[in-house]
């Protein structure tokens, strides 16, 4: 299961931030913030190429303890999910569906 979820606005300002362990929120915030660089870069790259149908960005970062996944809506609202690396059970598809749920909830 994800340990942290964040919604980031178009201008990269935080809109929503939640994590399972509130004490670590600061750490997660740092992680999520840094991952935005990758998101931006991926978006840049995607813009040059074909039109992006795929909202899911895949894994942004894998850290020693955590993996960070990203998802961008057409309006450039970003969803970020942080999952524990040890959680090998978590498949890409599950992450995808998590994002979709998040997206529909948000919408």
């Amino acid at each position: 299961m994800a340990v942290c979820a964040a919604i980031v606005g178009k201008d990269n300002s935080p809109k929503y931030f939640a994590c399972t362990n509130p004490d670590e929120e600061l750490n997660f915030q740092y992680k999520v913030l840094s991952s935005l660089d990758v998101v931006e870069e991926k978006l840049n790259a995607a813009n040059k190429g074909s039109d992006m149908r795929e909202l899911y960005l895949g894994i942004l970062y894998s850290l020693e303890t955590h993996k960070i996944y990203g998802y961008v809506t057409n309006t450039k609202i970003k969803f970020i999910i942080v999952a524990e690396s040890t959680n090998t059970a978590l498949r890409d598809n599950e992450i995808r569906s998590m994002f979709r749920k998040l997206h529909s909830l948000r919408a």
Partner: peptide
């Protein structure tokens, strides 16, 4: 007017 940065981190 818009909050651009991450205030929690900024404060930290």
């Amino acid at each position: 007017n818009v909050q651009v940065g991450w205030s929690t981190l900024q404060i930290q």
